[in-house]
Structure formats: structure tokens, C-alpha cells
């Protein structure tokens, strides 16, 4: 558990990067920190391994204040992956991965075995890659090495600073999927800074949304799609994305108002435009009525039948596809 207690950071030039942040990052979960640039997300993360020091407030790891720990020892106990990968160019892949274990004084056979294990974990053939140099690998492969380097000494906490944002879209997506899988296996406390909402929704267990040095909302991806704490959060996620991510059955008729029929002669039941698709289905199913008169402010805005729901379902699907 990583706990920030009323943490403020003011840079020497006067910019306030963090403004009294109090938050707890849960253990064994992947927590994404997201927000527009300059919101303080990277600063917040870099405080965990003391690459950044708070102006006031304190950070605790398992209730021990990080300020009381030796920074070198602290950093060696925390994995760190950065956006620009940062593999050391004159070291082989094996030597790169072995940096922290070597500093910790592991013996050679243990390091060799660990390198094999890690390369396999990130899906790189150990025989092929271990003695290569970073420049011989593609960006995606380099970042796989970056991730395995962070895991080398089996730290409990791993910090990832926009690790996939410099990669091409295909590698990025692959690595996101694999990180998810990897996390299921290794169950580390991962703090993942990103500016990509889709990435956060895809990989995170918890998402922290930040703005101007403060936390706007912390929630699971599902909760975030269901309920946005502030207008900023709603705008930041984006209506499109919210609609797209929501379960079709949970969307309201209001969102499909342009699909309604204007007239209907025959039986109907009345319902508010705020009912969900699921509720509309139930109404149509247990009622011999063929139509629902959809009302907004007590005025009928249109009529809904089976065919309308089909169109709505297609539109919902389209929204997903058009992304």
C-alpha cells in the first residue's frame, strides 16, 4: 500500500505541481494515474521512489515514510520503467536486466537464471536476445526488456511512466494486453502514469484522474464509466468513450432519441426517456403492446418498437467499431 498524506510540491520556479494530495494506492493492483499534461501525475509517481521530494506532506509505503529510507536502497527495491525506455546502449540485454541484481550482490548463476526467466516472461527468446545490444531490437522489444529489467529483483512495487506511449500503435496494444496478463501472474503493485484514457480503461484496476495538482476522482474503470464525479472527469473521458464503453443494455433511450418513430396508431405503454434499454426490452416483452411511447418532460417525443431497439443496437455496435 502506498499512501500519500497531504502531499504538496512547489517547484523552484513557483509552479505548484501538487496541491495537498491525499490518496492510497492499493497493493497488488495496477493503478493508472491519468490527467492532462502538467496535472502533476508524473511528479506524484516519481515521489514514490524519491526521484522527486515533496515540499510538504509525506509518502508512506506499507506505513513506512519514504523520507526515512535511504534513497538508493529504496529505488533498488522498486521497479522503474520509463517512456523513453532508457536501456544502456553499451550493455547487452542480459547486462541491462542484471543491473539491479548485480548492485544487490546476487551471484552469477542466480542472475543468469533470473534473466532467462524474465525474458521468457516478456516473450523474448533468451537464446536469441540475451547477448544482443539494445540497438538491435525494435522499440517494442526494447520496452519488453525495459519491463523485465524493472522486474529483475522481484520488487513489490513497479512504477511505469508512460511506458508504451512512444511505441507504434500495434506494439503498444500488444504490450498492454501482455502487461495485463503478466499482472495476473505476478500480482505486483503497479503505478502506471499515462495520458491515454483508453489505455487506462484497458489495463487498470483503479484509475486516478488528476487535474492541476489535485485528484478529481479515483475509481475502477467500470465505476468511472458509470459515474463521473465532476464535469471535468466527464469531459476528460469524453461522452463518446463513455457511451461506447457502457453496456448497451444500460444505456438510456434518451441516447437513441433520433431513432424513435414519430407516429403510432395502436396500443402503447408510456415510459420516460430515461429508462434503460434493458427496461424497454422488459416492457416490450411482458406486454402485448407493440410500442412504448417515450416521454420527456411528460411530452411524448416518439414511439419505440422492436425494430427501434434493433437499430439502436446496431448504432451502439457502430460506435464501438468506429473507434
Amino acid at each position: 500500500m502506498i499512501r500519500f498524506d497531504n502531499v504538496t510540491k512547489v517547484f523552484p520556479d513557483g509552479t505548484k505541481a501538487l496541491n495537498g494530495v491525499t490518496v492510497t494506492i492499493p497493493t497488488h493492483k495496477l493503478t493508472a494515474i491519468i490527467g492532462p499534461s502538467g496535472c502533476g501525475k508524473t511528479t506524484l509517481m516519481r515521489m514514490i521512489n524519491r526521484l522527486e521530494l515533496p515540499t510538504s506532506g509525506e509518502i508512506f509505503i506499507d506505513e513506512q515514510a519514504v523520507s526515512e529510507r535511504d534513497e538508493v536502497e529504496l529505488r533498488r527495491s522498486i521497479g522503474y520503467v520509463i517512456q523513453r525506455i532508457g536501456l544502456i546502449p553499451h550493455m547487452t540485454i542480459e547486462e541491462n536486466i542484471a543491473i539491479v541484481p548485480e548492485m544487490l550482490g546476487w551471484d552469477e548463476s542466480r542472475i543468469t537464471a533470473r534473466v532467462d526467466e524474465l525474458l521468457e516472461l516478456v516473450d523474448l527468446d533468451s537464446k536469441t536476445y540475451r547477448s544482443r545490444y539494445p540497438f538491435e531490437l525494435s522499440g517494442g522489444q526494447q520496452q519488453r526488456v525495459g519491463v523485465s529489467r524493472a522486474l529483475a529483483s522481484d520488487p513489490n512495487i513497479i512504477l511505469m511512466d508512460e511506458p508504451f506511449s512512444a511505441l507504434d500503435p500495434i506494439s503498444r496494444e500488444q504490450l498492454q494486453v501482455e502487461l495485463r496478463k503478466l499482472q495476473k501472474k505476478i500480482k505486483k503493485t503497479i503505478v502506471f502514469v499515462t495520458h491515454d484514457m483508453d489505455e487506462a480503461l484497458e489495463i487498470a484496476d483503479e484509475i486516478i484522474i488528476m487535474r492541476e495538482g489535485q485528484i478529481e476522482q479515483m475509481a475502477t474503470p467500470d465505476e468511472l464509466i458509470e459515474h463521473q464525479a465532476t464535469d471535468f472527469v466527464r469531459d476528460f473521458i469524453g461522452q463518446d468513450r463513455i457511451a461506447r464503453r457502457r453496456d448497451f443494455a444500460q444505456r438510456t433511450l434518451e441516447e437513441f432519441d433520433e431513432l424513435l418513430d414519430e407516429t403510432w396508431v395502436g396500443d402503447y405503454a408510456e415510459a420516460s426517456s430515461m429508462i434503460t434499454v434493458q427496461e424497454a426490452i422488459d416492457l416490450l416483452a411482458d406486454n402485448s403492446n407493440k410500442r412504448i411511447a417515450v416521454k420527456r418532460n411528460d411530452l411524448i417525443i416518439g414511439y419505440l418498437g422492436h425494430h427501434t431497439l434493433l437499430k439502436a443496437a446496431m448504432k451502439d455496435r457502430e460506435g464501438e467499431l468506429s473507434v
Binding site: 526521484l51 534513497e71 529505488r75 520509463i82 544502456i88 543491473i99 539491479v100 548492485m103
Partner: peptide
């Protein structure tokens, strides 16, 4: 030396002397 390499070294817990010896001087 690329800033990101130094940053990675620092983040992994290398001391300034280790960064000099293992990263900066060879480069």
C-alpha cells in the same frame, strides 16, 4: 549521454559514481 538513460539509472538506484562509471564514461 541521453537524459533518459541517466534517469533510468537513477531510478534503478545507481549512485552518481555508478552512473559515471557504468553509463556516462563508456558513452
Amino acid at each position: 549521454a541521453d537524459e533518459s538513460i541517466i534517469e533510468a539509472g537513477r531510478g534503478m538506484g545507481m549512485t552518481p559514481n555508478q552512473i559515471l562509471k557504468k553509463i556516462e564514461l563508456p558513452i
